[in-house]
Design a protein around this nucleic acid. Structure first.
Length: 996
DNA sequence: ATCCTCCCCTAC
DNA sequence: TAAGGTAGGGGAGGAT
């Protein structure tokens, strides 16, 4: 038996192997194969000529013996393999015995592998693939460029996530479609516009499925003509003993039984002179772009399946010979990319795709309608798209292995066994029926990132760091796609009990996977929001981090970001300035054309968008044309270039100097940096220039401020327990005092102001989405408190029950006094939720009873919709409740309260305003930071709602915060962040910060 | 009946 | 050493 030949055949007509192996001549085998089928009008492709590539010698083709080109090509490849080295053929014989062992595995692997980038079944499911190890000599013509001293796991590499994705081929494949959508968005949207006139039902379609031949290898070896006929595979490592996985193998290599997904050591055992070449993602991207450019040139209905595979609907292409179109396209692809492609032509997507399998490599195949039945009859069900190994097994257990057998099963039986949709799919597909259309525009439904290799955590810090980086990654991807999402799903792979360390180096091995999700009312792409929510969901797993083998984060319920809004999304000082800059520009244009100041020509929104995209692409330099180096940090907030800023900032002379001067020193100093130091000089100059004028122009502002500060003063004045000497909350005074102290470096904290977009909706009962948000009421159900059980059935009812269960049997005096200080409706709500025997008047002596009354999460509760809870922080923290009536009341409860109270430092005034604002210096811990971050965000959101009546009160809050700044640097940051926004809100009443 | 979450399966 | 990702779809089962 000629095993090489058999293996070769296996790779493209696998399901006919049994009928073939007993024939002696390959020619005979193939002829018999096709005559047996008697259906294929397999035609030779007009082979494109290219000086760099040797294509299979085809020349003219005999129509009656269709498959000749393929046959010849196969023979060529086989003979070339034999010529490779004197020992190759001997080796082949030697391998015969070995290969016998592989048969099962191969069958399984090769049956449906038509396309090269098609991804193998993960090897952790194929334990058998690990058992072959052979000492082989290395035969490598190309030295793989590999980093040798790089860390490779979460245990040793703090930048693991970033490095990981850069080098992952699966990541490349998985994210390719989104990059394609971005790149070809013009073409896609054009077609979308003209799509409506299709009446698909009656019309018979002509579909071409086109697929590059062993894409990953071909792209690499097009620059190494000497390798074309040698067995070559793409892999990260060519260590002949290693467990690196073969990504793709060319046809000569497949002759030796080398398959995608195989460990290198197994591949080398089969084919010792196998040449391993490294990945070149840039080249893949480039060739894929060329590929799609060609497709779009010939046809405007292109559905991208992957980087090397697409469907074309050529029904209305003008040319009514689809075979000719396919042929032209293939020729052009070969000429341009120096790689070959195969095509299948048929009346629907299913048959076109099946036809391609028969056409490979470098051929094309047309399945006419009348031949469909015969073609399918003996086709194994596994060959149908949509039937993987699980369905195959399920069908096998029902004695169904071929489409012919499947046709015998009634639709009802299929529905019963597989469900309606899958049942229909099976019933239709085995009859060659496929009603899907070529879908040009495919909207993204979810975006995520996942790592299941190299994940080994030493402690929870490592794990948290990893999670945070994953969030960054996902946030960048969302922004890169211009979408935000509402559903956040965290997936965790945990080592199965009793599972050993996997054979694959750093693999995840046998795992148990679990996932949990949370839906928020307003979509987000913000990294801090994602981090917070992710942290919380993750915490709800209560998992030993040492057991974790993989983590994934997925965002769904996507909505596209309104481009015009993008520039204002981040409520940073910068965006605030730049958005105003744009306002200026528009107004300048309108009012006066004589203004010559250079305000920067790029529209803000565009600049933002470009900046984001650039940042994303940059961080993924492998996807760009690759001149830029990779920045070490993927942080949107910090990576924006200075050049960008100055190009969008308003010129100094447009700033309202008086308003600027009234800003806190930190803000001025930040702005000064943005203006490269010119702002301070400008201010000084202004001061010197004319005090008289300045006096006049500040007046109205000062009056307004007085009004505010009067109210503020009253409140502060009531507060006897707080040091009053720091300035009575007059904003001007405050600011000048701040200016004097102003040594504190202003670092915009990790908190971006738009983080809690959804909180703003919570705070805003007007928001339709919120009131209508049915899902909201169920939101917290999957994220349980540390105490609550984690069963899947938990929902809001459970959640509420748990909360009540967590209530202490008796409330302490402290509990009662806390409750007393809560707003009436909140108090009522809590009391109502208590069982009678736990009523408030039942006071015990548990000092932290009230703390225990709440789950170890920080949450938001909206009392207008008492069933709505959003749990925001990971445990163990405090409960933070916000309720919205018409007036802002923030309650920071629990531990903080306990701490502050113990120190006797709570001011009654601010208790009522902030209820339980912690003031003790000992509170300045990490926990403190998080709470303040939340507080900051929420205040910001509130400011953004611009509810006039509350502005004043807010101002007081901030002034108060400012006065606390000596105790906490973080408070200063909170203040610094919130104040500009507040200032903006206030100053909007008299024309904004910029004079116009 | 319809929706949601969790999970599995599939394709590349 | 090695980079076992990503996204879509559907079923089960529970809640409304």
């Amino acid at each position: 038996m000629d095993c090489v030949a058999a293996n070769k055949l296996l790779s493209w007509v696998p399901y006919q192997l049994e009928e073939l192996v007993n024939k002696t001549s390959k020619q005979q085998k193939l002829s018999s194969f096709f005559s047996h089928k008697g259906i294929l009008s397999l035609k030779n492709a007009e082979t494109p000529v290219n000086q760099n590539v040797k294509f299979d010698a085809e020349g003219s083709l005999s129509k009656d013996e269709g498959p000749k080109d393929t046959v010849l090509s196969a023979e060529d490849q086989v003979s070339e393999c034999r010529e490779l080295g004197s020992n190759v053929h001997d080796k082949t014989c030697e391998e015969i015995s070995t290969e016998a062992k592989f048969t099962d595995l191969e069958d399984e692997h090769s049956v449906v592998q038509a396309s090269d980038t098609s991804v193998h079944r993960p090897s952790y499911m194929d334990s058998s693939s690990c058992m072959y190890s052979k000492n082989c000599k290395e035969a490598s013509d190309i030295k793989c460029a590999r980093a040798s001293n790089q860390s490779h796991s979460t245990l040793t590499d703090p930048n693991f996530v970033e490095n990981y994705f850069r080098n992952s081929r699966l990541h490349f494949i998985g994210t390719w479609r989104n990059r394609y959508r971005k790149r070809f968005s013009n073409m896609l949207s054009e077609v979308k516009g003209g799509k409506a006139n299709i009446n698909s039902d009656m019309q018979k379609h002509a579909i071409i499925h086109i697929d590059m031949d062993c894409f990953f290898v071909s792209v690499i070896i097009r620059n190494y003509p000497e390798l074309i006929d040698k067995p070559v595979a793409v892999c990260h490592s060519d260590n002949p003993k290693g467990t690196a996985e073969i990504s793709s193998a060319n046809y000569p290599a497949r002759d030796y039984g080398v398959r995608a997904g195989m460990f290198v050591r197994d591949a080398k055992a089969r084919c010792p002179h196998l040449v391993i070449v490294p990945y070149d993602f840039e080249a893949y991207e480039e060739v894929a772009d060329q590929f799609y450019s060609i497709l779009h040139k010939h046809c405007n209905k292109v559905q991208a399946l992957s980087c090397d595979e697409a469907f074309l609907d050529v029904t209305e292409c003008g040319n009514n010979n689809p075979e000719q179109i396919a042929s032209m396209i293939r020729m052009e692809i070969a000429g341009t990319t120096r790689c070959t492609a195969s095509a299948g032509i048929a009346e629907n997507l299913l048959l076109a795709r099946l036809a391609t399998r028969s056409a490979k490599p470098n051929g094309q195949c047309f399945i006419p309608s009348e031949k469909v039945d015969d073609y399918l009859n003996s086709l194994p069900v596994k060959a149908l798209p949509g039937i993987g190994h699980a369905l195959e097994e399920k069908l096998k257990s029902r004695q169904v292995q071929t489409c012919g057998q499947l046709r015998m099963v009634s639709k009802e039986a299929l529905h019963k066994d597989f469900g309606t949709k899958i049942g229909d799919m099976l019933w239709n597909y085995c009859r060659g029926i496929d009603n899907r259309m070529v879908e040009v525009v495919q909207e993204t439904k979810s975006i995520g990132a996942e790592v299941n290799w190299g994940v080994r955590f030493d402690g929870s810090t490592d794990c948290e760091n990893f999670l945070m980086n994953l969030c960054k990654e996902v946030s960048l991807r969302l922004q890169g796609c211009g979408v935000q999402g509402r559903a956040i799903t965290v997936k965790v792979r945990k080592r199965k009990k009793g599972a050993e360390e996997p054979i694959k180096f750093m693999g995840c091995g046998d795992c148990e996977t679990m996932s949990r999700s949370m839906t928020i009312p307003v979509p987000t792409d913000n990294v801090v929001s994602l981090q917070r929510i992710t942290k919380q969901i993750f915490a709800s797993f209560h998992i030993d981090v040492k057991e974790i083998r993989g983590i994934g984060l997925q965002i769904s319920k996507l909505e596209s970001v309104d481009i015009s809004r993008q520039g204002h999304e981040e409520n940073t000082l910068e965006s605030w300035l730049t958005s105003s800059s744009e306002k200026i520009k528009t107004q300048c244009k309108r009012i006066s054309s004589s203004v010559k100041q250079d305000t920067g020509e790029v529209l803000v929104a565009d600049a933002e968008c470009q900046s984001k995209c650039r940042n994303y692409e940059h961080s993924k330099s492998i996807y760009t044309n690759g001149t830029g180096s990779c920045p070490s940090e993927i942080n949107l907030g910090s990576s924006r270039s200075h050049e960008n800023r100055t190009s969008t900032l308003p010129p100094l002379c447009y700033l309202d100097i008086d308003v600027v001067k009234s800003l806190p020193q930190e803000i001025i100093s930040e702005m000064n940096d943005m203006y490269k130091g010119e702002l301070c000089a400008f201010l000084e100059k202004h001061e010197e220039d004319g005090r008289g004028n300045a006096h006049l122009s500040t007046k109205s502002t000062a009056e307004e401020n007085d009004t505010i500060s009067a109210a503020s003063y009253q409140r502060v004045n009531c507060d006897t327990s707080i040091d009053m000497t720091v300035g009575h909350s007059d904003p001007v005074k405050l600011n000048s005092s701040a200016r004097n102290e102003g040594k504190q470096p202003l670092c915009y904290p990790a908190v971006s102001m738009s983080n809690l977009a959804f909180e703003s909706k919570v705070l805003n009962p007007e928001a339709n989405e919120f009131t209508a948000g049915k899902s909201m009421t169920r939101t917290p159900c999957k994220v349980q408190s540390a105490h609550a059980s984690c069963s899947r059935s938990d929902d809001l009812q459970m959640r509420t029950t748990n909360l009540v269960d967590l209530m202490p049997n008796s409330l302490t005096q402290a509990d009662a006094s806390v409750l007393e200080q809560l707003p009436e409706d909140l108090k009522a709500d809590i009391i109502e939720s208590l069982p009678a025997h736990r009523a408030v008047n039942s006071v015990g002596n548990d000092p932290i009873g009230f703390v225990r009354a709440f789950p170890n999460n920080v949450g938001v509760q909206n009392l207008e919709y008492p069933k709505t809870h959003l749990w925001l922080e990971s445990p163990p923290k405090w409960v933070v409740m916000f309720q919205t009536s018409n007036c802002l009341i923030l309650n920071i409860i629990a531990e903080l309260y306990t701490k502050s109270r113990a120190n006797g430092l709570l001011s009654s005034t601010f208790q009522s305003m902030f209820s339980f604002l912690p003031l003790t210096s000992e509170s300045c811990s990490e926990e403190w930071d998080e709470t303040l971050s939340s507080l900051c965000e929420l205040l910001t959101q509130y400011v953004n709602l611009k509810i006039e009546s509350d502005i004043e009160e807010l101002y007081n809050c901030f002034c108060f915060l400012k006065r606390c700044s000596s105790m906490s640097h973080l408070l200063l940051e909170v203040y610094s962040n919130v104040l500009p926004l507040l200032q903006a809100s206030v100053s909007e009443n008299y024309g904004g910060i910029f004079k116009l």
